[in-house]
Design a protein around this nucleic acid. Structure first.
Lengths: 157, 157
DNA sequence: CAGATCGCTGGACACCTTGTACAGTCAGAC
DNA sequence: GTCTGACTGTACAAGGTGTCCAGCGATCTG
């Protein structure tokens, strides 16, 4: 899927996103066209999804993260619930998970009191039967993909 | 914290990360220097953490995502466990959560069989007593922060 | 083996963006 | 009234980007 050079390209752009293709080619010791071709291919394959700015909710004042497991009422299915949860800005991520029609969502709030409000909003969503939440006390490993890239690039994968 | 223009800047760069400051200023109807100043400030405040390429694990062959709740043995504390889990490339994220010394981690695997292997690796980590996992069947809302940005920009926040 | 294909190299070109600076304008604060 | 801060519009040098092309070595194929 990706080779060693792909891995190094991704690694370099992850470490220093602003360097540009030309500087990257110098650092990697390959021609500029090569780096460009690799980036094009990686984007085409969907490996690189985009270069959007990463927003830190904490810096926006949303310092509390929690994971909420939802019990969904069977009747009506998931979709209406998803649509309603999508309208809650504090819902950062939402997954359907294994186990009796449940969902897992990641939410943020300004503080613990605000978290109560957000959870109430979610519980009030039509179709949600129960919600049980765990609060993230600390993020030991922030979202990362680099080791995965290295693993994928390392294997002849 | 951030105002309406900040919100529009973030929104625009999220939608089209490659446009550049000049084009952004044209679209937003403000001077280039203004956009530049806003971006600088947002980066300084930590709101914009960076512009690294977003990697899609699925495109790398890791199509399965799961959330694993870990029971940690009290003796020794979390840190050694964190250090060991950090060495597992499939561990994408790790949080300390509320409730008797537990942790929640997000992992990926190539398929369900591979997931078994990854979970075994995690359970084998010294200090991990038990692991219970839920598999993500579908991602209803992929990680997003835009609504939050809008909410923060909307309030006089 | 000859021929074709593919990816990489290294160079070239026009075009455009960036970084930076500066004077002018305007609104709000003191 | 005056000061401060933010935005505007402009300018300039420096450098990167998109694009194209010829050449080269490795690999595959008949």
């Amino acid at each position: 899927m990706i080779d060693g050079l792909d891995g190094r390209v991704i690694e370099l752009f992850t470490a220093e996103p602003r360097i540009g293709v030309l500087e990257a080619s110098r650092r990697l010791g390959v021609a500029r066209g090569t780096v460009q071709a690799r980036l094009d291919r990686l984007a085409r394959q969907g490996v690189i999804r985009g270069y959007g700015p990463e927003i830190d909710p904490a810096a926006l004042g949303y310092g509390v993260t929690a994971f909420v497991t939802l019990q969904i009422r069977q009747a009506g299915g998931h979709d209406p619930v998803v649509a309603r949860l999508a309208r809650v800005p504090e819902v950062i991520e939402l997954h359907t998970i294994t186990g009796g029609g449940d969902m897992l969502c990641r939410i943020v709030a300004r503080n613990n009191q605000d978290l109560q409000r957000v959870i109430d909003v979610i519980v009030d969503v039509q179709g949600v039967e129960r919600a049980s939440s765990v609060i993230s006390l600390a993020t030991q490993i922030p979202h990362r993909t680099l080791p995965l890239v290295r693993a994928a690039a390392g294997d002849g994968d």
